[in-house]
Amino acid sequence: MDKADPNTHGREDPADLAHVYELFATARAARPALPVHLAAAILDDAAAQQPDGTVAALAPRNTREGFGRWRHLLNAVGGWPAFGGFAMASAAGLWLGLSPPSFIPDPVVLAGLDADSQRMPFDGYEMAMVLSEDMQ
């Protein structure tokens, strides 16, 4: 049985209301069950009204779209594993170009070119002169 309601500041005699509290307890113990067809109708409504998942996104919509374009590009090259391999190959190429190991032949020599800067067809000064003549 319920206790007397403390929110009523003792204005009621609990003995007079005992019967009512007993009936409240009986009613609480036998709450009406949700009809199955009503639950199905509610879930149908929920499915019909459900947003597509972007409306209530935590991030601003345009930011997510921008990120989506990068994701499409990443997927096109094979995803994160392919991107990782690409990055590693780029780093190795850069290292070989800047500081090639001694056992690797110089690609300039292999191409039949002389590495002497004095004999290059256009060094900085001559290139400037050629370009200034072309402008005239």
Partner: peptide, 16 residues
Amino acid sequence: ANGDRRAAAELTTRLA
């Protein structure tokens, strides 16, 4: 709101 259908079922079970 983010598209999770199980959430609708759980809310229905709790609130309806």
